[in-house]
Structure formats: C-alpha cells, structure tokens
Amino acid sequence: MQELLIALAKGLVENPDGVTVTTDEPKEDGTIVYHLHVAEGDMGRVIGKQGRIAKAIRTVMRAVANRQNLKIAVEID
C-alpha cells in the first residue's frame, strides 16, 4: 500500500526525492492512516484544483484497500 501511494505521488511532483510516506498504528476501528509528505513547492500539484487530485488519490487507495479487506485514510502533509 505504501509503495502504491509513493508511486502515485512521484508521478505528480517535480521533486520525486521529496516524497515520503509515514504510517500510524491502526486505530481502534482498524483504520491505518498514511501521511503523504511532499516538498513545499509540489503541494499544489498533489492537492490539485479544489482538491480533485487529492480526492482521486484517496479513492484509488481506498479501492485497493477494499480488495485487501483493510480500512485506510490518506492525509497529505
């Protein structure tokens, strides 16, 4: 899951070396939170106009997680 999120983000940004992902411990309901960190100048590219790209990233990640019977959330920091 983490590799997929990194691959998606690296395809969008100008500085792929600035992309990192951290994960939190699963919450009480089993949800795993992934924190996507990108360079300051690439933040707009990952979020997109009115958050459309961020929403698309979250949708893809949730679809993959559903196939693996996982609950996830993606936060962009």
Rank of each mutant, 00 (worst) to 15 (best):
43 M>Y: 08
14 E>H: 13
14 E>T: 08
61 M>L: 10
17 D>P: 02
29 D>K: 01
68 Q>H: 08
28 E>D: 14
65 A>W: 07
5 L>W: 13
75 E>C: 06
61 M>P: 08
72 I>F: 00
23 T>W: 00
53 I>E: 02
70 L>E: 14
66 N>E: 06
69 N>R: 15
16 P>Y: 11
11 G>N: 07
66 N>Q: 10
60 V>F: 04
33 V>A: 10
34 Y>R: 04
49 K>L: 10
65 A>Q: 08
75 E>Q: 12
56 A>P: 01
16 P>M: 12
49 K>Q: 02
7 A>Q: 11
29 D>Q: 02
73 A>E: 13
7 A>N: 13
49 K>R: 15
54 A>E: 02
19 V>P: 01
66 N>L: 11
40 E>I: 08
6 I>N: 06
67 R>F: 00
74 V>Q: 13
69 N>K: 08
39 A>I: 05
12 L>K: 02
76 I>W: 15
6 I>D: 01
38 V>D: 14
12 L>G: 03
50 Q>D: 14
63 A>Y: 06
60 V>E: 13
32 I>C: 03
20 T>Y: 10
75 E>N: 09
2 Q>I: 06
68 Q>S: 14
59 T>S: 15
58 R>H: 10
12 L>N: 06
8 L>T: 08
24 D>N: 09
46 V>T: 08
62 R>F: 07
36 L>C: 04
23 T>C: 03
15 N>P: 05
7 A>H: 11
26 P>N: 09
59 T>D: 13
73 A>H: 05
14 E>Q: 07
45 R>F: 09
5 L>T: 06
38 V>F: 09
36 L>T: 06
34 Y>W: 11
11 G>C: 10
45 R>D: 14
3 E>G: 01
8 L>E: 12
48 G>R: 04
50 Q>T: 10
18 G>F: 11
25 E>S: 01
13 V>Y: 06
71 K>T: 04
6 I>A: 07
70 L>K: 15
59 T>Q: 11
42 D>A: 09
42 D>Y: 12
48 G>T: 03
38 V>C: 09
28 E>C: 02
37 H>Q: 15
3 E>N: 12
26 P>Y: 00
18 G>C: 09
11 G>F: 04
13 V>H: 07
41 G>E: 12
58 R>A: 11
23 T>L: 04
64 V>M: 00
23 T>P: 01
59 T>I: 06
27 K>S: 02
74 V>H: 11
66 N>I: 06
33 V>Q: 00
4 L>Q: 02
68 Q>C: 10
32 I>K: 02
60 V>H: 07
32 I>N: 01
57 I>C: 11
22 T>Q: 15
49 K>F: 01
27 K>M: 07
24 D>A: 07
68 Q>D: 12
28 E>Q: 08
76 I>S: 03
28 E>L: 13
71 K>W: 02
54 A>Y: 05
31 T>F: 01
65 A>C: 08
45 R>V: 00
70 L>Q: 15
51 G>V: 00
65 A>N: 09
62 R>A: 11
12 L>E: 04
25 E>K: 13
30 G>H: 01
38 V>W: 10
62 R>Q: 08
57 I>W: 14
59 T>A: 15
73 A>T: 09
27 K>C: 00
